[in-house]
C-alpha cells in the first residue's frame, strides 16, 4: 500500500484497510523508537490558529526521527495579515518544505491547501470540520488497549460522553469506528446529543447505538469510555451549564462497577469532567493517548514522504 505524496485531509478519505495499514505502521515505528526515519526531510507547520498540543506533537514527531521543522504559530507574523491568499501562502511554503501541516480556523482550508500544493498536506485541524491525525491516534490507542478492534474477534462496547453535538473528535471517531465491529453507547446532556447524520451513518454500517443515562452506566457497560469537555459557550443559560457540569464529572468512586479492562480516553484538555483522583486508576489512559500521537504522526509523515519504517 503506497501512500507516497498522499494528503491526509479527512478520515472520510480512508478505507478500513488503509486505516489498519496506518495503525500497523505506527506500531512498528513505536516499537523501533527514536531513529532517522525522517532524516533529511523538512516539515512546515502553518498554524493559522494556536494549538499547542497538536503543534508540539507534530514537531516532536519530526525531531525524534531526525527530521527538521519550519513554520509559524502566530498568524499576526505572516503575510496573511497583509492580505495574502491561503493559496499563495501554500505556493510559497511548498518551495521550502517536503510536507506541510496546516491548522486553520476555516472549515475546508486543508482541502484547499492540498489542491494547491505539490507536496503532501496533513490537516492539523480545519475549523469545526476535521482533525484526522487525532482520529488516527484515537484509533491507535483503542486498538492498543483493546486488540479486538483490529482483530474483530468480538464487538467492542465504546461509550462516548460529553458534548456529542459539537465535538469534532467525536464525529470523526464515530465515522471511523463504523468500519469496525463495535457497539456505541452515548451519554450526553440534553441538547448536546450526537447529530442525526452520525446516528444514521452508524445504522447503515450495522453498528448498534444506544443511549445510557449516566457516566456510571457508561463506565459499567463499556470497554472504552471516550470523554469530552463541555464548553460553557454551548449553553444558552449559565445556570444550566453549572447544573450539567456538576452532574457530568467522573470520579474514582464512580468506577467501582466498571469492567476491569475498561479504559478512559479524552482528547484533552480536560477541565472538570474527570477528577484528578481518576488519574491514578488503571482506567485512565488519556495521557498515554496523547503520547500515542507521536508514533502515529511519525508513521503518517513517513508514509506520505515515501519513507519505509
Amino acid at each position: 500500500m503506497d501512500f507516497t505524496g498522499r494528503d491526509i485531509i479527512s478520515i472520510a478519505d480512508f478505507q478500513r484497510s488503509e486505516i489498519l495499514h496506518i495503525l500497523a505502521r505506527a506500531a512498528e515505528v513505536e516499537a523501533t523508537g527514536r531513529g532517522k526515519l525522517l532524516a533529511g526531510t523538512v516539515m512546515a507547520t502553518l498554524f493559522f490558529e494556536p494549538s499547542t498540543r497538536t503543534r508540539l506533537s507534530f514537531e516532536a514527531a519530526m525531531l525524534h526521527q531526525d527530521g527538521r521543522v519550519i513554520g509559524f504559530s502566530d498568524v499576526a507574523s505572516t503575510s496573511t495579515r497583509k492580505g495574502e491568499s491561503l493559496a499563495d501562502t501554500i505556493r510559497m511554503v511548498e518551495q521550502y518544505a517536503d510536507v506541510i501541516v496546516i491548522r486553520h480556523p476555516r472549515d475546508g482550508a486543508a482541502r484547499l491547501a492540498a489542491e494547491v500544493s505539490r507536496v503532501p498536506v496533513i490537516n492539523g485541524g480545519d475549523g469545526a470540520n476535521q482533525h484526522p491525525t487525532q482520529t488516527f491516534l484515537d484509533l491507535y490507542t483503542i486498538a492498543k488497549l483493546q486488540p479486538a478492534l483490529a482483530t474483530g474477534e468480538r464487538a467492542l462496547d465504546i461509550a462516548f460522553a460529553g458534548d456529542l453535538r459539537y465535538g469534532r473528535t467525536v464525529h470523526s471517531l464515530v465515522h471511523a469506528l463504523c468500519h469496525f465491529r463495535v457497539n456505541l453507547l452515548l451519554v450526553a446532556p440534553r441538547g448536546l446529543e450526537l447529530p442525526e447524520q452520525y446516528l444514521e451513518e452508524a445504522r447503515q454500517a450495522g453498528v448498534a447505538v444506544r443511549t445510557v443515562a449516566s457516566l456510571q452506566e457508561a463506565a459499567a457497560q463499556s470497554d472504552i469510555l471516550y470523554m469530552t469537555r463541555l464548553q460553557e459557550e454551548r449553553f444558552p443559560d449559565p445556570l444550566e451549564f453549572d447544573h450539567v457540569k456538576a452532574s457530568y464529572r467522573m470520579t474514582a468512586a464512580m468506577l467501582a462497577g466498571a469492567r476491569p479492562s475498561m479504559r478512559i480516553l479524552h482528547p484533552l484538555p480536560r477541565v472538570n469532567e474527570i477528577a484528578t483522583d481518576v488519574d491514578a486508576t488503571p482506567h485512565a489512559q488519556y495521557f498515554a493517548q496523547a503520547g500515542n500521537g507521536i508514533p502515529v504522526r511519525q508513521a503518517l509523515l513517513a508514509l506520505v514522504l515515501g519513507r519505509q519504517p
Binding site: S10, A12, A87, R106, D107, G108, L112, D126, N129, Q197
Partner: peptide
C-alpha cells in the same frame, strides 16, 4: 473567505442534496 472555486458534490437526488467538497457539510 478565499478567492477559490465552489465545488458541491451531489449526495442525494430526491430531494437534491449536495456536500461541499471543502468543509464537508451537506
Amino acid at each position: 473567505h478565499e478567492r477559490w472555486s465552489s465545488r458541491l458534490a451531489v449526495v442525494g437526488r430526491e430531494p437534491l442534496r449536495v456536500r461541499c467538497c471543502y468543509c464537508e457539510r451537506s
